[in-house]
């Protein structure tokens, strides 16, 4: 239904009415918050006279040195490679498995309890086993990422399939679709929005687990950067620099997935 143009005009005016323009709200407000935090941080470090905790300036310097040495880029590349390898493997296994579990009730009855039992185990608890199986190599953290993202993806796909309105399936059958056609033409598009939500959730967990895994199982990556900076000379400026990079990259990737989500649900 079309609303009267004048009504929508009014509505838009009402929404953006606060005298602060939108761009200011979107960019200036968060930037202001950031600036205040940096100032408070600075003051707190100086006032307390700590020799351990770095000032924002020191952290900024640490980031530029890291960036110049190209080590940072290597570490970022290593972290991203691991996370994408584990995450795509989890997608490749998790979505088909979730579909099967959602579609065949007996299969779900036999396998779901196992999944529900494995799910609450923190992926980090697998670390000792991962190190035994894969040694200190890329494979160990990749495996942990795989585990971390697998369960939310399976569960999202399974619940998605189960919650497809039965009339969509009935209509598909009525128009003479075979089961594979029903999957591609009805089930996948019907489930997609839910799967994307699961994928985003899984990615959040994967990114958190990655850093922890890299602190133990490997000798490169953002997690390693942090642990190494502390162990080799208590460089807390590097520690905080690493933390900031992790947060920033995580935010960028999440924004990317969000964009895909919006694009699909449109």
């Amino acid at each position: 239904m079309k609303t009267h143009p004048r009504d929508t005009e009014h509505a838009e005016k009402a929404l953006s009415a606060p005298s602060v323009p939108l761009w200011f709200q979107r960019f200036m407000l968060p930037l202001t918050t950031a600036a205040i935090i940096l100032i408070l941080w600075s003051i707190a470090v100086r006032a307390s006279g700590t020799k351990i905790f770095p000032t924002p300036a020191a952290v900024a310097k640490a980031i530029t040195t890291l960036a110049e040495k190209s080590l940072l880029w290597h570490y970022i590349a290593d972290s991203l490679t691991r996370v994408f390898a584990g995450y795509t493997a989890a997608i490749a296994v998790g979505i088909p498995l979730g579909f099967l579990l959602g579609w065949y009730a007996p299969l779900a009855r036999s396998i779901n309890p196992l999944i529900q039992m494995l799910r609450p185990i923190s992926p980090l608890a697998w670390m000792p086993l991962a190190v035994i199986w894969f040694g200190v190599s890329n494979a160990a953290p990749t495996f942990l990422i795989f585990l971390a993202s697998l369960f939310p993806i399976i569960v999202a796909a399974m619940n998605g399939v189960r919650n497809v309105p039965p009339m969509y399936i009935q209509a598909g059958r009525n128009f003479g679709l075979t089961t594979p056609q029903l999957m591609t033409r009805v089930m996948i598009p019907a489930v997609l929005p839910r799967i994307i939500v699961g994928l985003r959730l899984a990615f959040g967990i994967a990114w958190v687990v990655l850093v922890a895994a890299e602190m133990i199982a490997v000798d490169s990556g953002l997690g390693y950067l942090i642990i190494d900076a502390r162990n080799a000379g208590k460089r807390y400026d590097l520690v905080v620099a690493g933390m900031l990079m992790i947060g920033l990259i995580g935010l960028l990737l999440d924004t990317g997935i969000r964009k895909i989500e919006q694009w699909i649900s449109d």
């Binding site: 009339m167 009935q170 128009f175 003479g176």
Partner: peptide
């Protein structure tokens, strides 16, 4: 079995929201 020579129109909305 269902057959495309006889089509069921649903009480609830059966149109596909992704099309």
């Amino acid at each position: 079995a269902p057959d495309r020579r006889r089509i069921f129109v649903f009480q609830e909305r059966g149109v596909f929201p992704w099309l």
